[in-house]
């Protein structure tokens, strides 16, 4: 397989040809390809994207998590932004995991940059990256006993009754 130019169609085709059913869902979001893969396949699929000669997604732009409390069993999304500099192509990979057992393999073996990004994601969402060499809190203090970006933690003190936001959304 060789591709002169990468676009959403041929990257998606290459992914489905190689991994078949492991490509659970795909969509375009403002021109960027979003691909959902099973959480236990993140290492081999992203590793393949990185090492494949015609894709060369050698740059991990960003790694973060998103919390969807109403999606039972798949509350947490771990989102990877990959970038192929040689082909100037960006894509987004998503893995959904449950909030009860938030475990996913660490990408630190593939990208050094993943180290602190995963620590940050652990710090704020409690995602356990298995295989991470040093999974500790990074921005919050070590004594903290919760993961503050989860949606169940309101930004303001919920016991306050002097503010009524009911007219203006959440």
């Amino acid at each position: 397989m060789s591709m002169a130019e990468l676009n959403n169609e041929n990257v998606l085709k290459a992914l489905t040809d190689t991994f078949g059913d492991a490509i659970l869902h795909s969509e375009m979001q403002f021109g960027m390809l979003n691909v959902e893969i099973p959480a236990d396949r993140n290492l081999d699929i992203i590793g393949w994207l990185k090492s494949n000669e015609s894709l060369k997604m050698e740059f991990l732009t960003d790694l973060c998590a998103v919390h969807y409390p109403e999606q039972k069993g798949r509350e947490l999304a771990v989102v990877y932004h990959l970038h192929s500099w040689t082909k100037n192509y960006r894509m987004r990979i998503k893995c959904f995991i449950s909030a009860q057992k938030p475990e996913i393999a660490s990408l630190t073996g593939l990208y050094n940059a993943a180290n602190w990004m995963e620590r940050e994601t652990f710090d704020f969402y409690g995602v356990q990256f298995s295989g991470h060499p040093d999974l500790r809190r990074i921005l919050n203090m070590d004594e903290m006993d919760y993961h503050p970006l989860l949606k169940q933690y309101a930004l303001e003190d919920e016991t306050r009754d002097d503010k009524d936001d009911s007219f203006f959304g959440r």
């Binding site: 403002f30 732009t61 960003d62 932004h81 959440r170």
Partner: peptide, 30 residues
């Protein structure tokens, strides 16, 4: 929708990953 936009900041790629659920505030902003 979700959008990632990056600009060349003075010390590198400054990116905004924004997820909107149509509400008045971002659902998630990284």
């Amino acid at each position: 929708g979700e959008v990632y936009h990056a600009v060349e900041g003075a010390n590198g790629e400054l990116g905004y990953y924004l997820i909107s659920d149509g509400g008045r505030t971002p659902y998630r902003l990284h």
